[in-house]
Amino acid sequence: MSALLRAELLKLRTTRTFIALTAAALGLSLLLITLIALLQDDWVEQDVRELFTGDFTGLFILLLGVTGMAGEWRHRTITSTVLAAPNRLRLLAAKTIAYAVAGAVISLLVTLAIMAVGTTILSVRDLPTLGIADLTDGLWRNLVVSAFLGAFGVCIGGLVRSQIAAIVGLLLLTFAIEPTLLAVAPHIGQFGPTSGAPNGVLELEAFGDDTDILSPAVALLVLLGWLGLVFAGAATLLQRRDLV
């Protein structure tokens, strides 16, 4: 298993997609944080918390996970991958863990960068900032959600072999279906895998009302439930599929 994990991590970091998505996540997040920190005037502590958690990193990590698995079908490399690792369950597990690790690493990089830049700007503007304890708290929440999204993306890529369909579906879920559910039926929307439950872990208020989000512990369990569900589905399909 550790050999497969090493291979997946090596595969991941030797493709341009990983570097491009990491750079895009870092660049966009830094731009967003810089603009908000410079332009917004009224700040409370919750605003600062959300400044360091409400970025687009998760979306990039989700896409990275999807392309990591669905790309195997797109480039028809799934055959050589399965030949190297004929136990398909272990293969999927290794890939899922690898992209969870990758998500956490990207999140660590981006979060540390935006925290450093955001805190510096807020300090210069003599606005409230977060102490080390609060920053650490925000950091681990970001890492947990990012690790989940990387793993979740891999399993979605295993369920939907078409990379385009998987990405379009996830974008619809993230930007249309879940926001709509959170707005019109928050008691359902709060369980969503890309916004609802992650908001609970991050303690982000969806629409300014904290009754809309799950508690972090429950949200974490919901995320694990989602991961278990999509992993089981992807594993079943991967094991049953004939690679012709």
Partner: peptide, 13 residues
């Protein structure tokens, strides 16, 4: 094994 449709990730060396 060498299969008929041996495919490689185009971006990898």
């Amino acid at each position: 094994a060498v299969l008929e449709d041996a495919s490689f990730h185009p971006g990898r060396t």
